[in-house]
């Protein structure tokens, strides 16, 4: 009996092996695979003293202080293709009795400005820090401008100051990068 069953089974099995196939699958869907990670990353931070805005040697005001750092990954081809939105969060804490204008100039390798944003930081008091939060959301066509840049120039400007002014201006910042990574070939 078993012999009678096994022989046809063997034939069927062999046929199965020969005829085995892959059904009901669509490998073209691979084109639609999209990774959408949202990455939180610290950006820059600084701690400016009121004295940084006044040159005691020459007894003159330095109404604008400026510094630059590269953000080399920003104009990376992969980031240019994948970054859909970037949300910058700047947290200022000010104990200087002055209002500040803070500018962020994103520039490319040719020193051309590709993206610009700025904010006003409220005045505070020594012993009474005042927080200013600034959120800059970049998406759509602006994201292309942002990702043309590979560095940011930060300028902090005060209208007037003298050597008697004390306190600190502190910045903490981060960026939330919304990426969309997929096969673009």
């Amino acid at each position: 009996m078993k012999k009678n069953l096994l022989l046809p089974l063997t034939v069927v099995f062999s046929m199965l092996l020969v005829c085995s196939c892959v059904k009901d699958v669509d490998f073209d869907q691979a084109q639609n695979i999209t990774l959408t990670p949202v990455v939180e990353l610290d950006l820059i931070y600084f701690n400016l003293d009121a004295g940084d805005f006044f040159d005691t040697i020459s007894n003159t005001q330095r109404l604008t202080v400026r510094d630059t750092t590269e953000i080399r990954f920003l104009d990376d081809t992969g980031v240019q293709e994948s970054l859909k939105r970037a949300e910058f969060l700047f947290n200022f804490t000010n104990t200087i009795n002055r209002e500040f204008q803070v500018e962020f100039q994103f520039i490319n390798e040719m020193n051309q400005e590709t993206y610009y944003t700025s904010t006003t930081v409220s005045a505070g008091n020594v012993g009474n820090p005042v927080a200013t939060q600034f959120i800059e959301n970049v998406e759509g066509p602006e994201i292309l401008e942002l990702t043309m840049a590979d560095r940011v120039v930060v300028s902090v400007t005060v209208e007037t100051i003298d050597e008697t002014v004390a306190g600190e201006l502190n910045l903490q910042s981060k960026t939330t990068y919304y990426l969309e990574i997929k096969d673009r070939s």
């Binding site: 610290d42 820059i44 931070y45 510094d67 750092t69 981060k174």
Partner: peptide
């Protein structure tokens, strides 16, 4: 531990790199 980039705003002459 990565904290981001600290800017120290050094006093620079015209054209001097940071």
């Amino acid at each position: 531990t990565l904290d981001g980039i600290e800017l120290i705003f050094p006093p620079l002459s015209e054209g001097e790199a940071t």
